[in-house]
Design a binder for these strands. Structure first.
Lengths: 229, 229, 229, 229
DNA sequence: AATGAATGAGAGTTCATTCAT
DNA sequence: TATGAATGAACTCTCATTCAT
């Protein structure tokens, strides 16, 4: 799906297929925003369309002018959040002087976004059970960007050339996910308040770990060895 | 919860709190076994008490003699699975000569378990949305063991002493989860067939990445530095 | 409702009661035509205003400039169809030399119409449940004509004078309805293809039955007798 | 479907397929009885499961232990009414000395039943739009019995041998239906009160008409002739 | 005269849980 | 100890109708 498609997708009703008026587009936005909060707070199954439309301040029936079903808006939300987190990361990484700096900036962008939009975390992970294909899409899109960056850095000897960039990308993503869960979401109070981003010590410790993993070694002693049992 | 408690839990009704007769214990076992299959096959929300009791060959009302609710039996299952996956990992690590070997063995044990019981592992992951506390317990128990192992290895200079073992443990767990999802669960066909474990190349590449991250550096150049933006 | 009324009804808005402009009249026509097809294809309850306006190529809101409600346009249709089936029958009977010939021609006209517009006739029958008064009107109008014909024939001794013409008319109508349903509508394939009219044998057998019922008996042995139990 | 099947069908849940307990059978009966009234009063589409269960004094969810859906209970009702009207007619005809007497008795039984159970009429006719197959079954079962009776009477020269008994049976059924509608149902007040059966004059007039149609003619002048246009 | 976004009452249906047996 | 009929709150979704444009 090209960027062009992603953008125009927002201007077309997913039910009637016709382009939305300005008013219609605003309504759609309000629904998505409400859905983000409701899904994040209550989870997919506890969420209901009534709760979403009430939060959006919109009539129940109106929902069905914009989305086919609860599943549909959920999937739209995953796509939406995916775009936004990637945007947030890309923006943070702009102008980074080195691989390390870019790495830090990218992770910082991710944690910032996650802290501000806990929905990202919950909605995306719950997608595994609601809409597995959307989950794949989400992870794959992010990993692809990551992997490309690692390959470029390897060519410039900023990253250990003996690493498999695909595996490394998935591993890095996994770290981000679990650390985000542990240090951002689990720290949230029942009121919904939580840290604005990862504490510095944790962030630095993680970056140190990652730096260790990626940095080129002085000597070639890191050749692959051993067997998978 | 001590091991003693975990074991005796099976001999006591979780509803009345009284010890079970032999017959009662058998009924409880059948319910748990049926629940394991039903939750694994259909997921928490699609599963129903009727399906569980039918599979167990037991009357619907009987269920409530043994469990308070659907959620209760689900949590019992998560505890059970947590024990089993930790057992699988511990067994694999027994007798490892070095930190690296233990690392390999532990991950291999984890991937084996996941590959063999993909649906069961699904239950654990779904716990995030059904019973968040159980998920915390599950992750925390695993991470604690990991962290302790890292600390011991650091004392013997098998692991970089400048690493934060807690962060490292969560990071490693995150890798395992996402790589397992990507290369084990996603590779399964619709028939339910999938790889018996992680492919060697992927496994070796991951271990190489981890080894990089954990191995002590010759010089002190890896000191922490930089700011969290 | 006189013929004059029936005709002018088309030139007046059934909502505002004011005469329609040429453009307005065209719109009303398109709505009625679309409604005829939609009601015939899908039945009253499956039909929806949206489907009708879409088929008419007209905005949804516009519908309510011409008709009060779904029921209103349905009733307009029933009136229209009643006129058409009576016209079809009357035309067929024109110029019949004898009572028997007229009888044959009238039934033939009815069966022709039903066979050619089975779905339209469905609309009329469904009126029994949507708008009972319209159905009464429909049946009564047809029966009245029938009854008048029977009375005239009795005066000319072409029909048994001991018969009650009202009962006979309703009985004849009932035959036509059920036989039409049985041998025309039920014989239609799923593709919508069916006989062009009643098979000759069936038609002749029915006419024979009717002739028996109506023909004057030689002797007076058919006087009314017996008790209703 | 044999009589044996029809009887045992009532002892088995149409949802679970298991035999019903005495209590279960009573509940099923109450639902059918309530459905008869609700469908008759309000029609299929206006009827709702809530209305049915409320009238039956039964919880909403209980409905689904006995019937899959509104359509299912409707069809069960058609079958039930069909059995009862045929029973009512057969009983009335028992011991009739002659064909004419049997005819009178059968029609009288039909009108009695219709007058007491207006549901029969409304439900059966509405079946044309709700469940066409059930309608066919209903009419066909009744007509088959009728036709067989006519054939027997023809062999004994009690009925005109030149008549086609199948056509005659459908014609007779059509008369009964429309006359019943006209003189029983249309005469009902809004309170639901109506005549206990057909007025004597109407009934006698109808029987006279039928007798004309069926009685053997003295001479053979009634041979079939003419063309279907 | 024409439009279509918005509405909400009310539909059919599910299922965890209760309780009389 | 075991049962399963009964329950009803809560769900998703439809569509005739309104009204601001």
């Amino acid at each position: 799906m090209s960027v062009q498609n992603e953008q125009t997708a927002l201007n077309v009703s997913s039910v009637t297929g016709r382009p939305l008026t300005k008013r219609g587009e605003a309504t759609r936005r309000r629904l998505l925003e409400a859905a983000e909060h409701v899904f994040a707070d209550q989870g997919y199954h506890e969420a209901s369309i009534v709760k979403i439309t009430e939060r959006a301040g919109i009539g129940l029936g109106t929902f069905y002018l914009y989305f086919d079903s609860k599943q549909t808006i959920f999937e739209s939300l995953v796509v939406d959040l995916n775009q936004r987190v990637r945007h947030s990361m890309a923006e943070a990484m702009t102008g980074a002087a080195s691989r390390l700096e870019a790495e830090r900036a990218g992770f910082a962008g991710f944690f910032h976004f996650t802290a501000r939009h806990p929905a990202l975390y919950r909605v995306v992970r719950e997608a595994e059970f609601v809409s597995p294909d959307m989950l794949k899409l989400h992870y794959t899109r992010i990993v692809e960007g990551y992997e490309a960056g690692l390959r470029r850095a390897q060519q410039q000897d900023e990253v250990d050339r003996t690493l498999d960039p695909e595996i490394a990308a998935w591993a890095l993503m996994g770290m981000g996910e679990l650390i985000g869960m542990r240090y951002l979401l689990w720290e949230r109070t029942a009121d919904g308040d939580g840290p604005a981003t990862l504490p510095d010590e944790a962030f630095d410790a993680l970056m140190h770990f990652i730096d260790n993993a990626l940095s080129p070694r002085e000597h070639g002693q890191n050749s692959k060895e051993g067997e998978n049992s």
